[in-house]
Design a protein around this nucleic acid. Structure first.
Lengths: 409, 409
DNA sequence: ACGCCTTATTTCATGACGTGATTTAACTCA
DNA sequence: TGAGTTAAATCACGTCATGAAATAAGGCGT
């Protein structure tokens, strides 16, 4: 285990960290603002900022009048102090994005994937190619990249060696980090895509400032990112957040996970379309679901519409029950609904979902929870992944940039 | 908000705290052991222990040979440095227990309650009388009591003023702390009974050492205590852990909470007996349930037994689904089942429950979770409540013993 | 232009703290 | 009795946060 707390030097690292977090999310701030926000004395803020400025992490930018006195100097993160890369390994494509420290996109690259064949090699090659492309397009040198965050579907086991168990991918204990390591020296941070997306919403979207929240993501499958004490809950082996396989109907519909009555078997996009049964236009699930929702929420009443209404009604009821379970168990201050299917449904039926959730939850915790939609759209996985190395920087635990030997025990 | 981190003095408090936690759960330890366990240098351990010994929190007790060298001096918590009181406000009685620091019982007092009438005044009077009694019986002066932990049924809202919302009690926003304050000056710590019981199991029972665990409690109702990062998760308004009202059957049995299909409506003792329907011997639920379980697990096959088997079978299936939901969502390393009904069922049917849970959970997180029974019996609520002031002592955040004015903001 | 006022930031002296190195303590064994 | 061994305490040093005091950087009035 790494040494962490104890010495007076760690104290400095901690203080530096709270200062950086404060600045990152509330910039620009004057030293005085920082003193107030962090509880540190002005003297300490002065010392720490001097250090940060000399390192180039923070820059002075402008100033602001102060009613007759010396103007406040505003501090900002230096967006060019380093760059981060986010990778979204999705069902149909790999997306690689290069960001500066403040998460402005500098370059992008997409690599299509065959939806029915996710060879590990393909994915690894795609990611490596993407890294090279965005670095070239963004005109950024690899040495100034803080790290690469990678959001993948399935369970990510964070052990001595990072292993990916991709249920829908047919991946079993794939040592993704090791495989990528052969092609790059950049620090790698691999995590579940739902978790990285949740972190994106937490940092920049509907979750800003929340200490306890659950971000529920509905696509073809159903997942969640659970935020406790302001950070993502990972559980014993980092697989926490598998919301989709909560049983909402004992003995109910068979789920692709092999169990029955799972939430996913009712509110996952595939399940919703399947329950509807009738053919829908469009080649892909997204178009089909949108059509179904249009039919079900339009004010007319043809035969097919009635059936659509029925399916959506049930979907809302099941989803409400699922959300209520989260509210009762976690008592979050916010529930945030996302994923492409979640957004499609939520945009039309959020009031109904809220009502269904209320019917299945206890009065007190429900009253303290707001139920909202994701604000960053369905493509925030890469953004969230890219926050992983930023998080390390803010915490002062970032790795050294170039290949450094690692000692165990 | 209180100042917390920042100064070099807080560092000392933190180090002192990790040292105390280590000692509390692994005593006796030598200074050398402590140095290794906490990561602090021997010099610091020496300094901190000197302070602790001079305060009387820690004592030297015995020594141990060291292969030819100076013997190691063993350190222990001083059990008499202070006392704590735990209160269990149950359905049928109030129990008050006085413990020393190491949780040895010094005195007990019980006050019966009318199960159908839980007047606030009755409860307050009972608690106050209990405090006086145990102090007298234990021959302990009030000034040496660190605090009183009180476990109550229902949701406890930890705000500027602690409010108790007792669903089954008919309590609505009862300012229990303020009411008790009229009769005692002791520091009070009020929490939900399921949470205090969970903490008892976490500290001294089946949960020892767990970082991520869920303690599920089944009695007449169903609750849970969720442990994340080694401590109880409370959520936004401290109502987290309401496991009983998770929907396991959309549109299912009506629950006393007003919703339908709740887990509690299937596996709560009352619900199980109700589903069985036939009359059972015994005046109380406990006897009745025990009889039902006997009938359902005996190797004969009379008509009534068949029905009992069916009811238990269903119960196990629902409970398994509920547990699976916890496993999928939290990825705990341990699930601990307790409560009087939970223990009755679990003692006979734990293998079946494990199997049912496995059927409804994902392979990977299930494989990492052990499902066990509580070890402290159903009466650990008071013990757990009494740990609340101990926790403060260990964290170095205990209040001053006698009435001290409180400044806001 | 000049000094005074106001406010922001830095500097300084001080007191705490943790730590490696060095001593001292407390035994065993020959 | 003295050498050997291990545990604990002490010491000198470096780091840190902080309140107080000093300094910087403007505005304003004259």
């Amino acid at each position: 285990m790494e040494r962490r707390r104890g010495t007076v030097r760690d104290l400095r690292r901690d203080n530096r960290s709270v200062l950086l977090w404060s600045l990152y999310f509330n910039q620009p701030l004057s030293r005085q603002d920082l003193s107030q926000a962090t509880g540190l004395s002005p003297a300490s803020v002065s010392n720490v900022t001097r250090e940060l400025i000399s390192e180039g992490v923070v820059i002075e930018a402008g100033s602001v009048d102060s009613d007759g006195g010396r103007p406040r100097v505003l501090l900002r993160m230096n967006p060019d102090h380093g760059y981060v890369i986010g990778v979204d390994v999705g069902e149909t494509r790999i997306r690689v994005e290069l960001f500066d420290l403040m998460m402005t996109v500098r370059a992008k690259a997409d690599y299509p994937l065959n939806p029915h064949e996710h060879g590990v090699e393909q994915v690894v090659d795609g990611i490596l190619a993407g890294l090279a492309t965005v670095l070239a397009d963004g005109e950024v040198d690899a040495s100034s990249v803080l790290g690469v965050g990678i959001g993948v579907p399935g369970v990510v086991e964070q052990g001595a060696e990072v292993l990916v168990h991709g249920q829908t991918y047919g991946w079993d204990a794939v040592p993704l980090e090791r495989l990528l390591r052969a092609g790059t020296d950049l620090p790698l941070y691999i995590d579940n895509g739902a978790k990285t997306m949740g972190q994106a919403e937490l940092w920049f979207g509907a979750g800003r400032g929340a200490q306890n929240a659950v971000i529920g993501l509905i696509g073809s499958g159903v997942g969640a990112s659970i935020i406790t004490n302001g950070s993502t809950h990972r559980g014993a082996t980092s697989s926490a957040g598998e919301w989709g396989h909560t049983t909402v109907m004992v003995g109910g519909r068979t789920c692709r996970c092999g169990s029955s009555g799972c939430l996913e078997a009712y509110v996952g996009a595939e399940a919703v379309l399947d329950r509807y049964g009738l053919p829908l236009p469009g080649d892909d699930q997204e178009t089909a679901l949108a059509t179904l929702i249009d039919a079900g929420t339009a004010p007319d009443a043809s035969t097919t519409a009635l059936q659509a209404v029925q399916v959506l009604d049930d979907t809302v009821r099941y989803l409400g029950a699922g959300i209520a379970g989260l509210i009762n168990l976690f008592n979050p201050e916010r529930i945030i609904l996302g994923g492409w299917a979640g957004l499609l449904i939520g945009e039309r039926l959020l009031p109904e979902i809220r009502e269904a959730a209320q019917q299945h939850s206890l009065r007190q915790p429900f009253a303290e929870t707001s139920i909202e939609l994701c604000r960053l759209g369905p493509d925030a996985v890469a953004l969230g992944a890219a926050t992983l190395p930023v998080e390390r920087l803010l915490n002062g635990t970032a790795e050294a940039p170039s290949g450094k030997s690692r000692s165990a025990s």
